[in-house]
Design a protein around this nucleic acid. Structure first.
Length: 588
RNA sequence: GCACCCGUAGCUCAGCUGGAUAGAGCGCUGCCCUCCGAAGGCAGAGGUCGCACGUUCGAAUCGUGCCGGGUGCGCCA
């Protein structure tokens, strides 16, 4: 039940009634009407801008229309009071029957409370991480991974049919470098002393790959020329790297449904055209590909700029700044060409909505990719790109030194092992993705209010603790939340309790707004507010014993308050699970 | 030169796609607790929302132009 959506409907109904009475014209556009919680709780429970938005069309002054509307709204069951305020706000105060309904809904629906049908079950593809398979994941990959995963969870909760996808860049020059690096480790495993030249990957994570190659091939690769051993070594190395990356992702509790190999786009089995070949034919048939020249890039002068005629995609027809090359000077496809084919493939698999999560350094690539998706799908599909800004890794406010020596970076695994998965996940989402993020390794394991991970988890643990204590005090207490739905919830009339109920009522609305905005960070902030309200109510009970959750000589009131505690715990657990963070029952 | 992102309290950031007196944490100041619910609590000070025009009943939010910071700008991935 979304209270706010419900009242938008009430406003619409009131308007059509006024239209029948001839007070306002029929069929006014109500698209801009919103019902929201007022900023100041003293204004009531709900507030709508309807009168101000519609005044002009209705031919009335905002306050006049507000008076007429409020007369209708006041007649609704459950509405205790209606005020017209300021320039024409209509503020509604609900009577005592409403919050109990909301709480009962939470307790009955449990973890499904807040789940939305907004997505209508439509398929949506979220592509994230897509780190090159040339080594373990480093801390820079972390944010996009966590953001993408949380966003996927959020969209699923909001009613989308989500597929989580990883694009394996296993076709470029970098995987040949990987193969050569692995081959050195192979020779090392056979007893040679090796030195790793500049330009190859020096990390010792390739040592096991070298040993695996010995196990499989013995010494047989040693005498062969590179073109013979490279494909086999490359395949084994990529598999090993992907296995490592999947393990790293699993440490963050991230699991993709689809891993898509770039190589499959280039493959020409038995000389048949590749997927990219066929894509280019399609684009050519629509006159979206041509041979032409590009002006040299501005800014940093390009040393070896060669003015040549090349195969170009008409990206400018779809809003990009310049047309984009599809073929390199050596005749191979550009990365972009493969990427168009890849997104076309997503479209062919049934996705009209796609989301890509990229690092901010790829921002210059957004327009051309969106242009490509429009072109390749003939305007039927759309691509959203969410850019994740840099993470600055700190320890006690000091930047963590990252050695410039190649291969010696801070791995994602190091960070997860040091501070734990929950801290990493929560903190990476506790900021808008397009703003730079400071991640302090010392601060995120602090047990205090300024560590939001701890503060929110502690609220859940505290709620569980209250319920455990209550079970001591009342032996026959039920345990399932739904069993509390019948409690005397109307006795929850303290302002702190009503405040919690208001926050709880706002949860479905938050989900429905955060999902289309692609902003899981709103959920993190909401959970912090909810946790704060619970801790606040607990603390009030210290000075005012009659506000404590457990009142030993008032069984009915205790039941009602425990119902509230159950509801808060359910929502914290629900929200945290969307963020991919555990909701512990006790803090240790 | 161009494109995209950011600019809100001393610091780190929210601000619910245009609403009412712009919020939170930290820091600062003051009070409370050192036996029973303090891994603290309560209260206070602190803001020309980068600047300037514009759009309208109404702008931190939308538009345009500046200023400052970041990212990127054939064939790399």
């Amino acid at each position: 039940m979304n209270l706010f959506a419900l009242f938008v409907d009430h406003v619409r109904a009131a308007l059509s009634e006024l239209a029948r009475e001839g007070v306002v014209p029929a069929g006014v556009d109500t698209a801009r009407v919103v019902v929201e919680p007022p900023r100041d709780a003293s204004h009531g429970d709900l507030s709508t801008n309807a009168a101000m938005v519609l005044a002009k069309e209705a031919g009335l002054k905002p306050r006049e229309l507000a008076e007429k509307l409020s007369a209708k709204l006041a007649a609704l069951p459950g509405v205790a009071k209606v005020d017209v305020a300021g320039p024409g706000f209509i503020n509604l105060t609900l009577d005592g029957s409403y919050w109990p309904q909301v709480l009962a809904a939470v307790l009955v629906q449990g973890r499904d409370y807040g789940r939305s049908q907004a997505g209508g079950g439509q398929p949506i593809n979220v592509e994230y991480v897509s780190a090159n398979p040339t080594g373990p994941m480093h801390v820079g990959h972390c944010r996009g991974a966590v953001f993408g995963d949380a966003l996927a969870n959020l969209l699923a909760f909001a009613g989308w049919k989500v597929t989580r996808e990883y694009y394996i860049n296993d076709a470029g020059a970098q995987v040949d470098v990987l193969a050569r690096s692995a081959f050195l480790r192979y020779r090392e495993a056979l007893g040679e002393t090796i030195t790793i030249p500049e330009g190859l990957y020096p990390g010792d994570y390739l040592v096991p790959v070298g040993k695996a190659l010995v196990t499989k091939y013995g010494r047989t690769l040693l005498d062969k020329p590179e073109e013979e051993w490279l494909p086999a070594v490359r395949a084994i190395a990529i598999d090993a790297m992907m296995a490592m990356i999947r393990t790293d992702l699993a440490a963050l509790n991230i699991h993709h449904e689809t891993f898509f190999s770039e190589r499959t786009l280039h493959a020409r089995p038995h000389g048949a055209p590749s997927i990219i070949d066929r894509l280019l034919e399609t684009l050519r048939a629509r006159d979206l590909v041509y041979e032409g020249r590009l002006a040299p890039p501005k800014g940093q002068p390009v040393e070896d700029w060669e003015d040549r005629e090349q195969t170009l995609f008409r990206a400018t027809q779809f809003g990009d700044d310049v047309d984009r090359p599809l073929m390199k000077s050596d005749g191979a496809y550009t990365y972009f060409a493969a990427d168009i084919a890849y997104h076309k493939d997503k479209f062919d698999r049934g996705f009209k909505r796609m989301i890509d999560i990229w690092g901010a350094d790829h921002g210059g690539y957004v327009k051309r990719m969106q242009a490509a998706v429009k072109a390749a799908s003939d305007g039927e599909a759309s691509l959203d790109v969410e850019l994740c800004q840099l993470v600055r890794l700190l320890r006690n406010g000091e930047p963590v030194k990252m050695s410039k020596r190649a291969g010696d970076f801070v791995t994602l695994r190091d960070v997860v092992d040091e501070v734990g998965r929950d801290a990493v996940r929560f903190m990476m989402i506790n900021r808008k993705n397009d703003a730079v993020l400071d991640f302090d390794l010392a601060k995120v394991i602090e047990q205090s209010r300024d560590n939001p991970v701890f503060y929110v988890q502690y609220a859940h643990a505290r709620a569980c603790s209250i319920l455990r204590n209550a079970a001591q005090a009342f032996a026959d207490l039920p345990t399932a939340p739904a069993d509390f739905a019948g409690a005397a919830l109307s006795r929850l009339d303290d302002e702190g309790e009503v405040g919690l109920a208001r926050l709880i009522a706002n949860y479905p609305r938050l989900i429905e707004q955060a999902a289309p905005a692609r902003e899981p960070h709103r959920l993190a902030f909401y959970l912090y507010d909810l946790a704060s309200a619970l801790h606040g109510q607990w603390n009030r009970g210290k000075d005012l014993p009659h506000l404590r959750f457990i009142i030993e000589d008032d069984r009915e009131l205790t039941y009602a308050r425990l119902a509230l505690v159950h509801a808060v715990a359910l929502i914290i657990a629900s929200g945290l699970s969307i963020l991919g963070v555990d909701a512990p029952e006790e803090m240790r």
